[in-house]
Design a protein around this nucleic acid. Structure first.
Lengths: 203, 203
DNA sequence: ATTACACTATACCGACCGGTATAGTGACAA
DNA sequence: TTGTCACTATACCGGTCGGTATAGTGTAAT
């Protein structure tokens, strides 16, 4: 709660950027929401572009920390965590404030290739995939990187699908697909048997 | 080549909307690109919003027609067509004009839930999934709708992934995942190894 | 008391936004 | 000749955009 002014501005901007869109959010609106003035905003963020990048970089850290926390709260084994990813995504989608993925949205709002926004967004998903690949490696995937990329495609697909049409069950379908891909990548029998087959792995 | 004025305006707007983004494209820029005047534009499209929706609706028809054509040119059997989908997506992503999916981008640019843009975008993917479900049904999928939704998630995921980071092989990975999901959904043996309990294989 | 500094207050800038008003042009039909 | 109609030309509207200039306030250290 002890936010200094810079953090307060960034937080106000972040909420507006995510809920209304970046281009749709004017600097004046941010200033008003943060209860400060333009001069202070431009002291800490020399341009709106800087503020946008700061927003994305903080979102990168915050969202991933939150996400890993959620997954850890739902599952103990690496394999169960891989599946829990889709439960967390599903619950996230269900909250009314859900407006899709901030990074995908940002990349869509600034379509020109090579925009710094794309780079930060790509980095987020690199981190995200690394996290999945770690889990995949821990439970003995044949190709952790392949599995991680495939699962991340399902996640991203589910997010944008849900964004265009709410409550269409994309997270559940993504999970079903993930189950098959995971089992296949572990060299197990797919389908029907489901999880906890190989409780040989510890932790 | 025999474009009337209305079509010419819509085409100019479409190219700008897709390449630069919708919000980033001013009415004046469209007018200039179409070599006409504001008065004519506003005669055919009472507001920019109308023009945006016209753009998306036409894109819906055009893109799907083009896409089905491409797939048919690559494969003959329904099963081969399911896989060819990912080849077409992969080639589309490789062209320099690629800026992601117009519908996903539009939904991201107008984040408020219930925006007409979302509805048109959702309809596009409904059509897209129906097309996949048809193919899935034709080659004997256990659950064509499930498979279609799963494959569409892979496609959407690959598109947004490629948008944020070009040439990262997302289409190829999506195809690898699709192979497993398709084989699984047809009741076949998924990969190089492994048996399957329900030997209900047909076709 | 003086200085330094973080912050506020407010007015302003040129540029652009979506959209409109008014007038005019050229072709074609009655 | 007259009217209609698609289209052009241009000036204009209020509002908002990102960003800046100038002046002032409160506080805490020196």
């Amino acid at each position: 709660m002890s936010l200094n002014l810079q953090e307060k501005i960034l937080q106000a901007a972040s909420e507006l950027f995510y809920s209304q869109g970046i281009r749709a959010t004017g600097v004046d609106a941010i200033v008003k929401a943060a209860n400060t003035t333009k001069m202070s905003l431009y002291k800490y963020f020399p341009s709106k572009d800087d503020l946008v990048l700061a927003f994305l970089r903080k979102r990168d850290e915050d969202f991933r920390a939150w996400f890993v926390d959620q997954v850890n709260g739902k599952a103990d084994t690496p394999k169960a965590k891989l599946l829990a990813i889709f439960d967390v995504i599903g619950e996230w989608m269900a909250i009314p404030e859900f407006r899709g993925c901030a990074f995908i949205n940002a990349a869509a709002e600034f379509p020109l290739e090579g925009n710094p926004v794309h780079q930060v967004s790509a980095e987020f998903y690199d981190h995200f995939r690394n996290y999945i690949a770690d889990l995949a490696g821990q439970c003995g995937s044949i190709s952790p990187e392949s599995l991680a990329l495939q699962l991340s495609l399902l996640v991203e697909g589910a997010i944008v699908s849900e964004q265009m049409k709410r409550h269409s069950g994309s997270a559940e379908q993504a999970k079903q697909a993930a189950i098959i891909l995971i089992e296949g990548s572990l060299g197990d029998i797919p389908d029907t048997t489901l999880l906890t087959d190989n409780s040989e792995e510890e932790q």
